[in-house]
Design a protein around this nucleic acid. Structure first.
Lengths: 344, 344
DNA sequence: TTGAAAGCGCTACCAG
DNA sequence: CTGGTAGCGCTTTCAA
């Protein structure tokens, strides 16, 4: 069913039908009703490609998911963020185009989006401290929103981020409040912006209690199960092991637990573990230690906000182009019972 | 840069340039070379929408990701599958269109893909035993490939699946070989095809040793952390607890571990746990029990196969339309040290 | 081997 | 308020 066929059926011109369907004001209510009814009856929907060609707008948003060739698993965070964005897109008539690329092909993916003109805007993930994609995309001229921030970037860019610094500060404070002093930090690679911020939060909490963090307790590594395991084995094998471990990723935390088990130690007795991961608001903690969780911090929610921001930018609506979501303190699924080290 | 501009630049007609770029045989080698060079130099790429409109082919594949409104987390399996499919699409010039929908809006999503004609084919996930999407899509006439199977479906459909039955049969056999007899099964909802198959594998293994499975040890539930936790608490609180637990999902297994910890029990001593999850081929097991892992079973690989199958179907190439990937025995990340219950 | 021209289905301009 | 018409950028007959 095409517009022409529908208009022939109604004895109207394609012009009028198009206007009626697209809510133009110059159509009489009577014809608009008739047209709408006929469209529904015959299951008419405009051909996206034809409309895109005519309007010059693709009505689609591109998501570029970076993927490491090294470890096969896709960061589940991207899935949740994408799901949230997808809701907003479909509500607004946008399609979502996904491009999964390894780090080296990434620039090519953007360029291809730009020249093929099949998206009106982009979402990019996981920025580094000084992310080169920002100047590159500014040059390209395709609107985009960054999921995360890039602290050292000089150019302006739109972003939606979770307050990683504060989240880690509070997680660390929770452990400090419970009497822990030797707290290990198993962080992601710290050229990534989020990881740098998490470390900053950890250090700030320690500093506020006058504790100088032991550099041999802080690690910046790929967030894999294997890294979690290996680092834990070596940490807990020392003669001065940490009493608590703060981990930046759920997958990594699973490795930490394997390490703890292999050593015959018990979670919450021999050592405590807090996992942070972005979207775990539905977490239920079994220990007697009170923990805060925050729905607002959910990655899905961040995806919704980023999508809306991008749509607004594309349509020239002005609104905020920077959004920091507070993640009060979100503890990950893998967080176990937490040991009270000493009454504070 | 449009085709017209490029052809003007070269003093050729758009027709010839189009033919040269698309590999039509009637173009002379000389002009083809010239055209290719100019296209590269000016960074020309055809406008996807215009081409789609002219050819009637969208050069895009739609993925419909079902999402439960109940638990906010997206099944990571979909992300991995999607990543694999994405590789194949971009190699073949296809875009990937993602549609994230809650279960009730799903039919609408397909219908919308069909009427808007913005995809040439579809991938669908997570079929139930008698999935209604199969007859529906057969009626729609849009080519599709199912990730998984639907045992009770009568109509023909193309699918790519992992051998869930065999995987669970072997996992169960591993525990039986180690002397376990009371093995709990924490399965997904068994109206889902994969879950039904997993249970069948479990039961087959038990039957082959002449063990009648205790129905009070088998559970069919949503694969959430909370379910894993609650079921484990109640299982291990019984006077006849299982000595081993076989779990159908990593997320659920995390809950199982929380349950075990809360009871003050130790993995691999008081109870053993095997997690199965599709794509965990990089798993390293710390115990002394030999386990088999299989790269071929990876979901990412399944995504690649499904994408290729769909592209072949769309282009009328005949080839297999059913593919069963063997997952020798893939143990999940959350699998802990496994207790040798009694020498077999 | 090349080119002219007619669409693909829709929107948007200009008349009426 | 409604309609004719000229594109959007590309492919694809049909002619040369």
């Amino acid at each position: 069913m095409t517009l022409k066929e529908l208009s022939d059926l109604l004895g109207l011109s394609p012009t009028t039908v198009s206007r009626a369907l697209n809510g133009y004001p110059e159509v009489s209510e009577a014809t608009r009703k008739k047209v709408a009814a006929a469209a529904r009856a015959h299951g008419y929907a405009p051909n996206t490609r034809a409309r895109a060609l005519a309007t010059g707008r693709a009505m689609a948003i591109g998501h570029v998911i970076p993927i490491s060739a090294k470890h096969e698993m896709v960061n589940p965070i991207f899935a949740d963020f994408t799901a949230g964005a997808g809701e907003v897109y479909s509500r607004n008539g946008y399609d979502m185009l996904l491009s999964v690329v390894s780090d080296d092909d990434e620039e090519q993916a953007y360029r291809s989006f730009a020249t093929k003109r099949n998206v009106d805007g982009l979402i990019i993930h996981a920025p580094s401290l000084d992310d080169q994609r920002i100047p590159f995309l500014n040059d390209l001229g395709l609107p985009y929103v960054v999921h995360g921030r890039s602290s050292n970037a000089t150019a302006h860019y739109a972003w939606v981020d979770v307050n990683n610094t504060r989240a880690f500060q509070r997680a660390t404070e929770l452990l400090l409040d419970l009497g822990h002093k030797r707290i290990a930090l198993l962080n992601g690679l710290e050229h990534m912006d989020f990881a740098a911020r998490r470390r900053a939060g950890y250090e700030a909490a320690m500093a506020s209690r006058g504790i100088t963090p032991d550099p041999t307790l802080m690690f910046s590594a790929e967030m894999t199960e294997a890294q979690g395991h290996d680092l834990t084995r070596s940490l807990l094998g020392r003669q001065d092991p940490p009493t608590a471990i703060l981990v930046s990723s759920m997958i990594m935390a699973i490795g930490v637990r394997r390490g703890i088990e292999e050593l015959g130690l018990t979670m919450g007795r021999d050592v405590s573990l807090i996992t942070y991961d972005d979207d775990l608001s539905y977490f239920r903690n079994g220990s007697d230690i009170p923990v805060y969780t925050s729905t607002r911090s959910s990655v899905r929610e961040a995806g919704r906000h980023a999508a809306q921001m991008l749509i607004d930018i594309i349509n020239g609506k002005d609104g905020p182009t920077e959004l920091l979501l507070e993640a009060e303190l979100t503890l990950g699924l893998s967080t176990g019972p937490i040991r009270r080290e000493r009454q504070p």
